[in-house]
């Protein structure tokens, strides 16, 4: 019995909790990609760098707050700075839309033209981020680090395995749930949200019924920038901020959006968790987990790791390919590109 409990605790500590936090971060990122796709009808390659840009803005405001002695008590100061980061990222997105995308929208250019334009935006954002904050790792988490410490948990439960719950993981989940509730309320209950969905379903009909396309596009960019910044800040708090890592997050985020069904917000959330849990479960070494469950003489010698951690990209990719082959609309019936 104790062995089973130990195994469960070990599993939650190394798979369940990190998977939930990572899944929430991916889901927020995928929501942004999926919204842009639904309304503006292109895959935004600059989304990873938009995340990096928003996070960088948040970090700079955080440092400024810290230098003024403002803190958020046990919570990280970055949460206080988050609205400012979102505002800066939104301004940047709107500027890029005005300077780059609006031209092609007026010309009704092919989707792939938008994608290539987003590569240009990606270069620019990437350059700006590296110019301002540099290409190195930045840690900006402060406040209380743990809610449950592994050692305290061991002492309290008497088990040999500890369970740690970092505050950043809890914050990630809470913030993600709040944001998703707010987003769905917005999309389903407000006039603007309904207008956005109508515009996404059928542009011409929406225009006929008096929806202002410029406003729809503007609101979409603001929401996408907000989602990107929140996802980026949560990821940065949980791990660390490095521009290149954010660029690489593009792949799992796209995989999440497509696996869930691109253009479908529910799908983006489901896709985020599917990708996150596949990555974590496939790259986790089950040696100790099995050691608790199996009798002593059957305990495994090797790490019992299906794939080395460095192959986590491969996992999201394989899932992506399987979904593309067998269910191209994704799990939740998004659009077919």
């Amino acid at each position: 019995m104790v062995d089973i409990l130990n195994a469960l605790v070990l599993f939650s500590n190394f798979v369940l909790i990190p998977g939930l936090a990572y899944g929430a971060q991916l889901a927020l990122g995928a929501l942004g990609v999926t919204l842009i796709y639904a309304v503006l009808r292109f895959s935004n390659f600059a989304h990873g760098d938009l995340m990096a840009f928003g996070t960088m803005a948040t970090i700079l405001v955080t440092w400024w707050f810290q230098s003024m002695g403002i803190s958020f008590g046990v919570l990280p100061t970055a949460l206080l700075a988050l609205p400012f980061g979102i505002a800066i990222a939104a301004v940047m997105s709107l500027f890029m839309d005005r300077a780059v995308y609006s031209f092609y929208r007026k010309k009704r250019a092919a989707p792939v033209t938008f994608v290539i334009a987003s590569v240009g935006v990606m270069f620019i954002l990437n350059g700006v981020v590296r110019l301002i904050i540099g290409p190195d790792d930045q840690r900006f988490a402060d406040g209380e680090r743990f809610i449950v410490r592994a050692r305290d948990f061991e002492a309290w439960s008497g088990l040999s395995e500890g369970l740690a719950l970092r505050s950043t993981q809890a914050i990630t989940l809470v913030v993600a749930i709040l944001i998703v509730i707010a987003l769905f309320w917005f999309l389903n209950r407000t006039r603007m949200g309904k207008a956005m969905r109508a515009y996404s379903d059928n542009e011409d009909l929406a225009l006929l019924s008096g929806i202002d396309p410029a406003r729809v596009v503007m609101v979409t960019w603001i929401i996408a920038a907000a989602l990107a910044t929140i996802a980026g800040v949560l990821y940065g708090l949980d791990k660390s901020f490095k521009p290149f890592t954010y660029f690489q997050l593009l792949l799992p985020i796209f995989a999440a959006a497509i696996v869930g069904g691109i253009g479908n917000p529910v799908g983006a959330i489901a896709g985020g968790f599917v990708i996150a849990f596949s990555e974590v479960t496939v790259t986790y070494a089950y040696k100790r987990f099995l050691g608790h469950l199996l009798p002593e003489n059957l305990a495994p010698d090797g790490l019992v790791q299906l794939l080395s951690t460095d192959y986590k990209f491969a996992v999201s990719f394989v899932i992506l390919v399987v979904v593309l082959l067998f269910r191209p609309t994704g799990l939740f019936r998004g659009k077919v590109i």
Partner: peptide
């Protein structure tokens, strides 16, 4: 064989993925 039946955006993401995997394999 896998990705070309699909249209442009999916091909882009599939190729992005395969290149990351190739690099990961060569690194490890």
């Amino acid at each position: 064989k896998i990705a070309l039946g699909l249209r442009s955006d999916y091909l882009a993401i599939a190729t992005l993925g395969i290149s990351e995997i190739v690099i990961a394999v060569l690194k490890n």
